[in-house]
């Protein structure tokens, strides 16, 4: 389910079935890395959209967590997100990001960080984009299924 009114309505009727959230982590900056960060957002966006399509009955895809790349407090802000989400009935949190700094910070988070190196899609044909994203998604699906099967 996605962050749109119709899906929220569905969620409210079936909340007990939806125990997993995906939060895309999207850095923003305005200097040399600006373009790279935009690519990351594009890529992460496509990827999470596809994941949601596969698992829409069990996953809630939240709008991205957007932060300035040099913001030191983004970890604290994200901690607040996850505490709130865990207090609600969500059991599993997945952060999908291309920003490698979250790999080091994973230990301070309760959710799982899925770090995916970003590809700049702007030079690619649609067909190629689709294949690449689908390939990535295929590799991610078992991670979710395994985690669900654990308990």
């Amino acid at each position: 389910m996605r962050w749109v009114a119709a899906d929220v309505e569905m969620f409210q009727k079936a909340a007990e079935y939806v125990d997993t959230v995906i939060v895309p982590l999207l850095p923003v900056s305005f200097d040399a890395e600006m373009k790279q960060h935009a690519s990351m957002a594009e890529f992460t966006g496509l990827l999470t959209t596809q994941l949601e399509k596969q698992f829409r009955g069990r996953i809630f895809l939240f709008p991205g967590f957007v932060y300035m790349k040099d913001e030191v407090d983004s970890l604290i802000a994200l901690n607040h997100w996850e505490n709130t989400l865990l207090e609600k009935q969500f059991h599993h949190i997945f952060y999908v990001t291309s920003d490698s700094s979250w790999r080091q910070r994973e230990k301070d988070l309760k959710g799982n960080v899925l770090w995916i190196p970003s590809l700049s899609l702007d030079q690619m044909q649609d067909e190629q984009k689709r294949t690449i994203v689908e390939e990535q998604v295929k590799q991610l699906l078992p991670l979710f299924i395994e985690l669900w099967n654990e308990k």
């Binding site: 569905m10 079936a14 079935y17 939806v18 399509k53 596969q54 698992f55 829409r56 009955g57 069990r58 699906l141 979710f144 299924i145 669900w148």
Partner: peptide, 26 residues
């Protein structure tokens, strides 16, 4: 598309029921 809440079902992925469609979500 699963008629429960809309996940994508797969064929034969549940080991105990290889001749059925299986929805990984619930």
């Amino acid at each position: 598309v699963c008629k429960h809440l809309g996940c994508i079902v797969d064929w034969g992925t549940d080991k105990e029921h290889p001749e059925q469609f299986f929805c990984p979500c619930h």
